Amino acid sequence: MDPKNIPYSHEFQVLEASCPNITTEYLRSLWSLVYQSHQQNQYSKPMPWIGMNIALASLLCVLAMVADLLHGLWNRKLWFPCKYFSLNAASLTVIAVAIKLPMDPNNLMPGDVHLAAKLGTMSFMCTIMANLLPSLATKDDKELVSNVIALALLVFSLVFNFCIQITTGILFFTPDAAFYPYKISFLDRVISLGGFVVPILMLLIIYACSSLAILKSKQILESKYQTANQTALKDPELKAGRLTVVKLKQYVSNYWIMAGTGSPQFMTACSITTSASGVICAASTGYFIFLIVFNFQFLLRRKDYNRSDYKYSVLVILMIQSIGVILGTIAPLARCFATFTTRKRLIEYG
């Protein structure tokens, strides 16, 4: 490459002329560093657009979670069934794009904004997993197993790369460390693991337990539904065709109860494992909000998001995923009370 095509080549030539005591080998190594830095800057120019792609994928996840939230509120289904945001190949692909930031274990992303963005992605993944849990009940056996395995592989990859960044210290890297050295303590590593890695692994265990329960519970629900249906059809008044308004209302209420409580997704949403996932999601969200509020002044004061290759897109990712974490926690947390609210509605219907 022609040195004249590299920025600051004139300054380099002035340095070479003004320092005659510098050896040729040293000049070559110095020139090699300049050349590599220039090439790195050239190759990293598309990175902000890749960051915007991550932001777009995150936005799609947020919109899907909000759509399920509004659908549940509109239909007064406070257990919030998964209608728009379901675990399938398409959603897994979008999720894989949305969580790319912590998946890059060797890319230097210095500064508080970048650290907050990576931690926000981990919390965002917790929120996504908690929202998707009831959708497992809508799958057949083969699809359920394949989707859970695919999600497990994605989670293991995310956790593995995040743990590498914690171990190497690249997660906490800052250019100021060259002048103000800061030793990463064991407590910092433990807090990062306990606050973001452990909740994701706990949710993955809940997914495995729920999958095993769903495979058997569907058969039990179908058997109980058929038994209740046959019992209702054997009613003498129904066979004779003599139905009063009160009796008709009772039959409609009974069938409504059977249809509502016999739904596999309703059963999963009202289960203990789903309630546990809601608590885990809320705890992860609370911890992330605490970190953002505690470091908010540093995020505003240090405009260091331009130090990495992603540049301004990191700030966009952080904003979208933070909104998604907050809004996405509503449905999982509400499912913790789904059993009580649904039971109240059943009593109202008689």
Rank of each mutant, 00 (worst) to 15 (best):
T329A: 14
S277V: 02
V190C: 11
V94L: 09
K239A: 13
L248V: 14
K118F: 02
F85Q: 00
T227G: 07
W31N: 12
L70K: 10
D141S: 13
Y287H: 10
S322A: 04
L133A: 07
K303I: 03
S58E: 07
L59S: 05
P102H: 05
S192N: 12
F337C: 08
T329Y: 05
L69H: 06
I99G: 00
C126V: 00
D68Y: 11
D68A: 04
V14F: 07
M47W: 15
Y84Q: 13
F288I: 03
S308E: 13
L346Y: 06
M267D: 14
L201H: 05
S313F: 09
G350S: 13
T244V: 02
Y35H: 07
L333S: 07
F294C: 07
Q250M: 12
L315A: 15
A55I: 00
Y287L: 15
T231V: 06
Y35M: 10
T274I: 04
M1T: 11
T244G: 14
F156C: 05
I54Q: 00
K100P: 00
P332W: 02
Q36D: 13
I50A: 07
S86Q: 09
L108G: 02
V325K: 02
A96E: 08
A96N: 10
S185E: 08
A17M: 04
N131R: 03
Y255R: 08
A283P: 12
G120R: 00
D112T: 02
V66Y: 10
L87D: 11
M1K: 06
K249P: 04
G241Q: 08
V113F: 06
T127K: 04
N88L: 10
L136I: 08
L215N: 05
L187Q: 07
P102L: 07
T121A: 08
K218F: 02
F124E: 02
Y287T: 10
Y35W: 13
N229L: 07
C336Y: 14
C281H: 02
V279S: 12
R335Q: 05
H71I: 03
P175N: 05
L63V: 06
K4V: 12
A67D: 09
A208R: 03
S223L: 08
S211E: 08
N131L: 10
A55H: 01
F172I: 02
D176I: 00
S146I: 14
I289E: 10
N53C: 12
L30A: 14
